[in-house]
Write a protein that binds this DNA or RNA. Structure first.
Lengths: 355, 355
DNA sequence: CTGAAAGCGCTTACAG
DNA sequence: CTGAAAGCGCTTACAG
């Protein structure tokens, strides 16, 4: 059980000495042969781990640094994901790194356990991993860190473990700005149709919304806050419900562009004119918001820049360089388009004056 | 110069015998050492090629069949590309193949020569290559074939070399169906705003359009055919030009959804109501056409299915299985939505009766 | 199930 | 610039 400190990288023979067995036995373990006693296998595996043994194949791979970064999405069926991917791809193209795209949310997907995925990423010498919204639990992310695989999370749904690097946007400030815009136009009955209650980014937007209302001296009404998935259907259902209220809102702050587009579609079916009868603000700044008719006022997130920043961070981690910060927040900004205006003049306004 | 038929795969020693040199010399050539006479290097390279020698690393890679397929796009800034990618990803997820996405059209992109790309694909043991619209010239595609890399082209802009497998849609039939739909509604002044003149798919759609007009007894007017990029701006510019004609069209067949959406936007600016004043049909069947207001009538291409079919074909080629056909054409179909209707009744109609 | 011995395929160090 | 010889790291075949 002597600790042999070989001059260079560990060889199979060194592992054999460490484990107190012969080389052929180690060879068998590595190659997954059956004819090895379980106790021996355990000893050998421990020695492999201890010395950090890599097969010739793995070593070649690591030296060659094939330069592949793996990007994991829940799905690519949202403009949000596509824009982030485009940012990653652009950054990758400019520095000759390759991008492997993985989608975990497909019904037919083989669901790889994170441990197996981590193993594959190690075996195949990936430079690192970018995770876009959700996908992995805190425990799963920690598993990657344990194996020293650089991981960067974009806009994490749940707060990631503190040692994981994340890239996001100033969601609180964005939510505040959207709401202030509507207040500034004269709206007082402003509803929030947002994403899942558990999602970090939704909480920040919601609290930005509430902060703006409070600062504006407007009462927060629980019946004006509808939380569910970031999907058009949620916008459709929620607008229906809000319009059925005795005192329907005159403006909607939607927690995502896709929700906002759902609101637009449903408003149209209701015969509501946008922005004359109802103002709508989205969040994300996807091209769909730009191209909708009327064009959607929205809080733009620098999605491409977020993708680029994530790739840069992964590569720095892969090179063991220092990062300025474990958490990057890029600035959002409001883009005013056609879907917002002052409320109808004749609107009965049970106004509380600003104080 | 004896041809040694080793029992199994070629070893370095076999290459040495074939080239009439020693093993160390071959080793040097393989590892790119400088101290080899040029004439010797040439002989050795010939022998390597001849015997199809693979380094241990390459062999490991090939055996392990890491299972990466490379997909090359011009860009991912179009709904078309994204839908194709989603098809590829879905198929890949269901059979545990990984997908590497490459985008060549970015301004900052390192432009890899196809020879270097082919080399990389060989070295890194990719299963094959899917090329989505354009990207490679005929000569470049042939380079891949020469090196026995499975290649499938989706919707080739130019007719690919006959030995390359391609996946497309029934563009001619789709163009004909779109035009017949407009004729059936009573339109006679139908313009075509299509893609690049050189693009195969555009030619097919244009000829489908012309075939329908001829069958309907409607004169083909060259001033009603506008060809340029598959982009919204082309739709905007062309509609402007068409509306300035002494006899503007009452219906537009757009060669892509993105062109169609440009037409919609420009019509709105012009104060034209859709579909009362102008009918518009798109092509592609992207979700943007579905979500536009008014929703765009379009000829749907099974883009996801095309992505799936391409991946299936690449894997069959990689396994040396037979393909049913070198060219797959999947069926398009017309989806009627809100952007088409009968022309305004009062329309002055210099009508030629159908014969 | 284990390991001494032989062997394989490639690389290295160096004499010419 | 080339190759005989030694060597390295791993695997294989087989005796126990």
């Amino acid at each position: 059980m002597s600790i042999v400190q070989g001059s260079g990288r560990p060889t199979l023979a060194a592992v054999a000495r460490e484990a107190g067995v012969s080389s052929p036995t180690v060879s068998k373990v590595i190659n997954g042969r059956e004819d090895v006693a379980e106790s021996t296998r355990t000893k050998v595996l421990a020695a492999l781990e201890q010395l950090g043994y890599q097969s010739t194949h793995q070593r070649k791979h690591a030296e060659g640094r094939t330069g592949i970064v793996e990007v994991v999405f829940d799905s690519l069926y949202s403009a949000y994901s596509v824009e982030v991917l485009n940012g990653v791809l652009e950054q990758a193209a400019s520095i000759d790194v390759q991008v492997l795209v993985d989608v975990t949310g497909h019904p037919a997907a083989m669901t790889l356990s994170p441990e197996r995925r981590a193993q594959r990423i190690l075996d195949e010498g990936r430079l690192g991993l970018i995770v876009v919204t959700s996908g992995f639990s805190t425990a799963q992310l920690s598993a990657f860190r344990r194996r020293h695989i650089p991981v960067v999370v974009i806009d994490p749904l749940n707060p990631p473990p503190s040692e994981v690097v994340s890239v996001g946007a100033t969601n609180w400030a964005g939510g505040k700005e959207a709401t202030e815009h509507l207040l500034g136009l004269g709206h007082r009955r402003i509803a929030y149709i947002g994403g899942p209650e558990s999602a970090e980014c939704n909480q920040a937007r919601l609290h930005g919304y509430m902060a703006a209302l409070m600062a504006g001296g407007v009462q927060i009404r629980p019946d004006y806050v509808m939380l569910d998935k970031f999907r058009p259907e949620h916008g459709i259902r929620s607008l229906k419900a809000l319009m059925a209220l005795p005192e329907p809102p005159t403006a909607i702050f939607a927690g995502s562009d896709s929700i906002g587009l759902g609101v637009l579609a449903e408003a149209r079916r209701h015969g509501l004119r946008i922005p004359e009868d109802l103002s709508v603000v989205g969040f994300d700044g996807t091209y769909q918001a730009e191209q909708s008719i009327p064009a959607l006022t929205t809080v733009t997130q620098p999605l491409q820049e977020m993708g680029r920043a994530a790739l840069r961070a992964v590569l720095r981690l892969a090179n063991n360089e220092e990062l300025d910060s474990r958490r990057v927040e890029l600035a959002t900004h409001l883009v005013v388009r056609e879907s917002t205006a002052a409320p109808a003049a004749g609107d009965p306004e049970p106004e509380i004056p600003r104080h």
